[in-house]
Structure formats: structure tokens, C-alpha cells
Write a protein that binds this DNA or RNA. Structure first.
Lengths: 166, 166
DNA sequence: TAAAACTTTCAGTAATTACTGAAAATAAAA
DNA sequence: TTTTATTTTCAGTAATTACTGAAAGTTTTA
């Protein structure tokens, strides 16, 4: 399998995977392209590779920068902006986790907590508050856990303990 | 806050949260409705509560049953089917995880593995294979590790060790 | 300061996704 | 078996999401 062929397939794969997890397909494709490109790419390079418009390329690149997955760089003697992706996959995972936590989990937790102020006189409230509390606990825990997992995997001692349990 | 008010708000919240994570919004809403209903509900109950069509209710209920999050029950003297949700949130989380793993992670891993057969003569393949391998390792590990850590969180001894790291 | 090079914005529109509603299928009752 | 109750299916369509392309904005060069 030729490199360019494999790269294109990876871009499709990552795009589809991303959209199944609520991440914009094109954004995931731009990310995949940059992840698998040695050199920094310009907006025009990306437009050409993915056959997307200038607007689309620009918006998705800037969004990737908000997520801290892509950086701007400059090439001497060239006026254009060039883009590179963070290549350390652990860092990528951590930053995606961090961003989703900030955008989605925190507001969710806040809303859930508010919903516990339900009128306790209603007999149905008992089950309701239990469900909400359980979800809160679960989400809170999973949140911490993903963090913990990352830290532990990075730590030789705990990493080896975890591996024993698998 | 009245119960019905809180329940409706929860249904909206869960629907939005679901759709941000690639889960059909209506399916998440039906799930939320059943999670917060003491009694089993009929298709008509659900159509009315969520203001959706019979077709939509039916399709989403059956999908929830495929995910193992909802069961059919019967009421004596009633010909209709009634539905209840699994109320143990831990079970809910495990089943969602299991289903997504089966549908998405496994195919992803398979595709990634295939992409490692890239022509090694191309100098760009080196970075490519490393990226693919890193992603494979990360996804595989997160999969196993989240399971392990969730179990450990429930375990007094390891739980306390983990808490030291947070 | 003006022209050129490049980036950003956004109204209009394309693509995707999932719902509606009615007809067909199935199951239960008479 | 026929009638009635209920569930399932799916073509058409609505809703959502995100892209296009051109104009406006910005920065650099001369």
C-alpha cells in the first residue's frame, strides 16, 4: 500500500470516527492530515489535499488551535501561515479530554446539581433524585478516572501495577 | 421546582448531552424519560410525553433495546407493550461502553492495524506508522485501563492508592 | 500611502441525519 | 376466520449541521 493511499484512508477513518463521537468530521480530517504530515502545511495545501474551501479550512484550523491540537508556524521567506499538529498522542488525548471536560462535562454537572432541587413532596422525586445523584457520581468519577488513567499510564510504577490487573 | 418540570429539563439535558457524544438525541430523550419514570411506559405514553411520532418512538425504543438499556414488559389485561429502563447507572455505563466498543472501537482498531502495511520505502511512512501505532496503543490501553480503574475505584485498597495520585 | 498577499467572516446553500405519518405486517381476540 | 389492536416499515420531508465562495478585513511590502 502506497503512503498517499494509506494517508487518505486514515483521513477518512479518523473523520468518520470523529463524527461518531461528536467531533466535526472535517475538523477531524484536517487533524488527521496534519498528524500524518512531516512538514507544516499551508491553508492552500490543506484545501487541495482535502478538497475543501478556504472558509472551511480556515474555520477548522482555528478550531483545532482552540483545542490546542494544532499550532501556527512561519516559514522564512514565505508570507503564508503554516500549520503543524501536536504529534505526541498522549498530549492529543489529554487535550481533547480537557477541552470536552471544560465544554461539556462541567456544564452537565452544574445542571444536574441544580435538578436535585426538585420538590420532595412529589413521590416520584425520590427515584428522580437518586437517578440524578447516581449520574452525577458516575460522570464525576469517570472524569477523574480518565485523568487518573493518564497519569498512571505515564507513571512507570503504577503503569506496571495496572498491567498486572488487566 | 416541580417534578414534571425537573424531569422535562433532565430529558432536554440528556438529549443534548447525548447528541454531543454521537448518540441520537431522541434516543437519549426516550432513555431519559424512562430512567426517570417509576412505572413502565407504553409507546403512546412516550409519544405524548416527548411529542414525537409513533415511528420515531418505535425505532428509538428498539434501538435502546439493542443497546440493552431498555426492556419490554407486559401489563396483565393490556395488549400493549410497556417499556422500562435499566436503572443501575453503573450497568448503563458498562452497556454503553460495551456497545460502542463493539461498534466503533473494534472496527477502528482493525482498520488502523491494516494501515500499518504501508510501503516502507517511502520516507514519510516512518512517521505515519509511528502515529498509527501510537493511536492503536492509546485506544487499546484506554479501553482496558478505564475498565481496570473503574474496578479499582470500587476497591478500598486500590481506591485509596489511586486517590493519592489525584 | 497604496497595492499585494493573505486571513477571516458570514449569508446562502449543500449534505447529512433522523423524524413523520400512513400503509403494511403481525398478533390477539372474538 | 374475521375483526380489532398493536407494532413495524419506509418514502417523503423536516431539522440540523457545516461548507462554499466572495466580500470585507488585516498585515506586509514597496
Amino acid at each position: 500500500m502506497k503512503f498517499t493511499e494509506a494517508q487518505l484512508e486514515f483521513i477518512q477513518l479518523w473523520g468518520n470516527f470523529g463524527s461518531q463521537w461528536g467531533i466535526n468530521k472535517t475538523m477531524a480530517q484536517v487533524h488527521a492530515l496534519l498528524l500524518t504530515s512531516e512538514d507544516a502545511l499551508s491553508t492552500d495545501d490543506i484545501m487541495e489535499s482535502l478538497a475543501i474551501s478556504r472558509g472551511g479550512a480556515n474555520v477548522n484550523l482555528r478550531e483545532l488551535m482552540v483545542w490546542n491540537l494544532v499550532y501556527k508556524t512561519a516559514k522564512p521567506g514565505d508570507r503564508k501561515e503554516f500549520f503543524v499538529a501536536e504529534k505526541d498522542i498522549w498530549e492529543v488525548a489529554k487535550r481533547i479530554t480537557r477541552e470536552r471536560q471544560r465544554r461539556e462535562i462541567e456544564p452537565l454537572m452544574h445542571h444536574l446539581n441544580r435538578l436535585k432541587n426538585v420538590d420532595e413532596a412529589d413521590p416520584q422525586s425520590l427515584n428522580f433524585v437518586k437517578t440524578i445523584t447516581d449520574i452525577e457520581r458516575l460522570v464525576g468519577r469517570m472524569n477523574k478516572t480518565s485523568d487518573t488513567v493518564m497519569k498512571m499510564e505515564e507513571n512507570a510504577f503504577f503503569g506496571s501495577i495496572i498491567r498486572l490487573l488487566k
